[in-house]
């Protein structure tokens, strides 16, 4: 999962980024509304964690702008404002959830997972494709009960494929998912991870296939 954290406080950003890394959530950081809108223009994120008190503008401005261009990326508002009207305003502007500071990371993580579930139309945090099961809460993939041994990037690749199972995942979407804007990106990096994932799925004898849609991307399907 790749999210955009819009937060200006450096200490909180560092602590959150560390917590996200531990949870294997890739996280890009924007300290201002301007930089956040730049990032959101260039690439897709699975979710946006939005602080309302930003130095250049109100976080709600970003939310309004995002929804104004028909971008349905889930947004969780993170704010120190305790008045209910601020919460109501945020939710009415199209935020998906709201969390008041201070908060436990576990709660943020749970809310993030809940928001993603809603977006993908899943009822539970465990999603099955063929005999492959992916638990979005523990981020453990199993084939017939046996856990797959995956690296974080492989897991992120599989996660996106499970989320959008039987639908096309573009190469661009995989790139956005796997690499931060600052990271180095080899020309065949996506192919490398897909290849490794295919091999591990095949080794586990999983009844799924990662089909290549030539020139477009990939699709995860259960084998008949």
């Amino acid at each position: 999962m790749r999210i955009l954290l819009v937060e200006d406080d450096l200490a909180l950003t560092e602590a959150l980024a560390a917590a996200f890394t531990r949870a294997e959530i890739f996280c890009d950081v924007a300290p201002t509304v301007a930089s956040a809108s730049d990032l959101l223009t260039g690439r897709t994120f699975d979710a946006v964690i939005l602080d309302l008190g930003l130095p250049d503008d109100d976080g709600l401005t970003l939310l309004r702008w995002l929804r104004g261009r028909n971008d349905a990326t889930p947004v969780i508002i993170l704010t120190a404002k305790s008045q209910p009207d601020a919460r109501v305003k945020g939710l009415n502007l199209g935020a998906d959830d709201y969390l008041g500071k201070p908060f436990l990371f576990e709660e943020l993580h749970a809310r993030l997972n809940a928001v993603m579930r809603r977006r993908d139309g899943h009822l539970y945090s465990v999603v099955a494709v063929g005999d492959l099961r992916f638990d979005f809460e523990t981020r453990i993939a199993t084939v017939r009960g046996v856990p797959l041994n995956l690296t974080p990037r492989e897991r992120a690749t599989l996660e996106l494929m499970v989320r959008r199972r039987e639908r096309l995942i573009t190469r661009r979407q995989l790139e956005d998912q796997l690499f931060s804007i600052t990271g180095e990106l080899g020309s065949n990096a996506v192919e490398v991870y897909v290849h490794r994932l295919r091999r591990k799925l095949a080794n586990a004898d999983a009844h799924v296939s990662v089909e290549t849609q030539r020139g477009l991307g990939y699709t995860l399907r259960p084998l008949p």
Partner: peptide
């Protein structure tokens, strides 16, 4: 008040996040 509240709560959030490690 809003600024102080925001700063304090943000700092408390950081402490909580750090404590979780």
């Amino acid at each position: 008040t809003a600024t102080v509240t925001h700063e304090l709560r943000t700092a408390l959030s950081t402490i909580l996040l750090r404590a979780e490690t």
